[in-house]
Nucleic acid binder design. Structure first.
Lengths: 131, 131
DNA sequence: AGTAACAATGTTATAATATAACATTTATGA
DNA sequence: TCATAAATGTTATATTATAACATTGTTACT
């Protein structure tokens, strides 16, 4: 668990703490029901917190699963350029961090006359434990 | 427009023709309303056709947009391993075809002790026209 | 041709995911 | 301290997707 999450508002902290303690991606409505005892009562509140957390790079969305995961990379600069390994058996998600994919995809884009700004990469397969 | 789409059923052909003629990704409920005159009346019918078309590789889903696009690559072998350039301005989508990304991602996966099976890559930015 | 097996369809209902709209409260800074 | 912007609370609704089940169409084997 991280030290402090300064600058976050109450609802943002509640949602981020849940995701960090969970260690796995959660769905918005799971977050909602898991935070009701803390005072979050409506989907809007969850989505608003998620939007902000995504914006500042603390949370990423797994598009293919409609789920949300806390970023465990210190000083993650990925923001909205994210890359994951997703196990099809246990659903474990690992964020790729040192692969320099931004420049790789930037290069591919450039050759196709396309101006890269972000990417979303989801690699599916089997993790070490499940394969 | 393609020659014939043998083996496809009626609803599958209706949906695929719409997507092919459209040339851009469409949402399921847009497909529904655009095919009602052809007899498709319920979401289930659209989603069933899409599922099958995706399974055989004729259609891919753009996960981040909840939309569906006909594959314009002849003899596309990507099936569920797909890679797209997506223009953030005009929403134009280009499928990457010759980049050999499967083996690239397979390599990354292997080094992380992960058994690759598929991937979904969405690169966002600005196309030639919009940049 | 008859028929068993299976795939696709039609139909109704509902689940799951996400946003709109607006009044109120809280933080921030000149 | 006052103006402003941001975040919240709340209700309602929009959007995306699936469940369930009865019916029809296809296939292929005899």
């Amino acid at each position: 668990m991280k030290i402090t999450n300064q600058k976050l508002t109450r609802n943002q902290e509640i949602v981020l703490n849940l995701l960090e303690n969970s260690g796995e991606p959660l769905k918005a409505y799971t977050i909602l029901s898991d935070t009701q005892k803390k005072g979050i009562k409506a989907p809007t509140q969850v989505y608003r917190a998620l939007d902000k957390l995504i914006e500042i790079g603390k949370v990423h969305k797994i598009e293919s699963k409609n789920s949300y995961v806390a970023c465990n990379i210190s000083n993650c600069t990925a923001m909205t350029s994210t890359s994951f390994l997703i196990c099809e058996k246990c659903e474990k998600v690992t964020e790729l961090e040192k692969e320099n994919l931004k420049s790789f995809f930037g290069g591919i884009s450039e050759r196709l006359n396309f101006e890269y700004s972000d990417h979303n990469l989801e690699i599916f397969g089997f993790c070490n434990t499940c394969k």
